[in-house]
């Protein structure tokens, strides 16, 4: 299937329009712009390219950048690496407060239509392959049973508050999936905490 990767800004807009919080981000052309964006707080710089799926494994993500020097070094390194994946862009993101990394995703199944996925996220996705899947639209019961199905349930949500948040996120994502023409969706990682969550990376394939 010939699929097209939705541009990050548009993807973030789509996700936000369903009241799913994606982390504040901005494309930057140089380290100076990154510094301006950071407003004195720690930021992340990433290479975005349709050709790079495993960004952190490929060294295309630099986290915890605090000052001009760090940002300049990171920007120049990423620019060098990014050329291999051209066309590419560099994006600056606010650092999400620490939490548990999960993946929430979706895909259009030939047999059953839109499916929604929840799994242990980030770099663990493909190592542990611990995930739950359902056909959309899902009910609250489905959302609860998806969480219960994870082997890593106690890692992903260690109290009722987190569970309730995750249920909401799943229900919203299901709504997005049903209403949007797309083939694949990755919200990975989503960093989830007791007091909220941040979608840190988004891939939408149409």
């Amino acid at each position: 299937m010939n699929m097209e990767l939705m541009e990050y800004g548009a993807a973030a807009k789509l996700v936000n329009s369903y009241k799913i919080n994606s982390i504040e981000s901005k494309y930057v052309k140089n380290a100076q712009e990154a510094l301006l964006f950071s407003k004195g707080k720690k930021i992340v710089l990433k290479v975005l390219s349709g050709k790079a799926l495993h960004k952190s494994k490929m060294g295309l993500v630099k986290v915890g950048l605090e000052n001009q020097k760090e940002m300049e070094a990171a920007f120049s390194d990423l620019s060098k690496k990014g050329k291999k994946f051209a066309p590419y862009k560099i994006i600056a993101q606010k650092m999400a407060p620490g939490g548990v990394e999960i993946i929430v995703g979706g895909r259009n199944d030939a047999q059953f239509g839109k499916m929604i996925l929840l799994g242990l996220g980030g770099i663990y996705v493909e190592t542990f392959r611990d995930f739950a899947l359902r056909a959309c639209p899902i009910t609250r019961f489905d959302a609860k049973s998806m969480i219960a199905q994870l082997k890593s349930k106690k890692v992903v949500t260690y109290n009722g508050k987190m569970e309730a948040q995750l249920e909401e996120l799943l229900l919203k994502t299901s709504k997005l999936l049903v209403a949007t023409k797309l083939e694949e969706l990755d919200l990975n990682p989503v960093i989830i905490r007791e007091d909220g969550y941040d979608v840190v990376d988004i891939r939408v394939l149409r």
Partner: peptide, 22 residues
């Protein structure tokens, strides 16, 4: 060679499993 993690995890077999659970 899937484009997303979701697609690489959840193939047709998993979709059936999901539907049976539902």
């Amino acid at each position: 060679a899937a484009h997303s993690h979701t697609a690489s995890l959840a193939g047709s077999h998993e979709a059936y499993d999901a539907v049976f659970r539902q």
